[in-house]
């Protein structure tokens, strides 16, 4: 999935931490956090593109690997990744609620049953 094709809606920027591979999100200060709720939302392609450029600088500094933009959408006042793949990546394995971000209260908030059962 190329970052460029994902810049048409609200985006967040995600990557993996180099040292342990854990999924991270870029926050409003340009830093990296594990908690999805603290991810900065970029409302347009321009902002998303600029954020991804900053992420690539962090990649060049060997803090993170494989940064890319993820399309998010608002559901009942909470942003969640639009694609199931990204929802699972931001939450943890659906078969292991004890593992991943969902185990630490760091997953996207789903206040209603999603259109695919998680």
């Amino acid at each position: 999935m190329s970052a460029e094709t994902k810049l048409t809606m609200s985006d967040i920027i995600t990557a993996n931490r180099l040292i342990d591979g854990i999924v991270l999100f870029q926050d409003a200060a340009g830093g990296w956090v594990e908690d999805f709720a603290r991810a900065a939302i970029y409302p347009n392609a321009e902002a998303s593109k600029a954020a991804l450029e900053r992420a690539k600088e962090d990649e060049a500094r060997d803090l993170i690997v494989e940064p890319y933009a993820v399309v998010v959408e608002a559901r009942n006042g909470h942003y969640v990744p639009k694609a199931l793949r990204e929802l699972i990546r931001a939450s943890g394995p659906t078969i292991h609620p004890d593992l991943g971000k969902q185990a630490h209260g760091q997953a996207p908030v789903l206040v209603e049953k999603p259109h695919v059962s998680l």
């Binding site: 591979g21 854990i22 999924v23």
Partner: peptide, 12 residues
Amino acid sequence: LMNGLYLQLHAY
């Protein structure tokens, strides 16, 4: 990769 280490959905 030559040592079996992949980067997957959640982690290595």
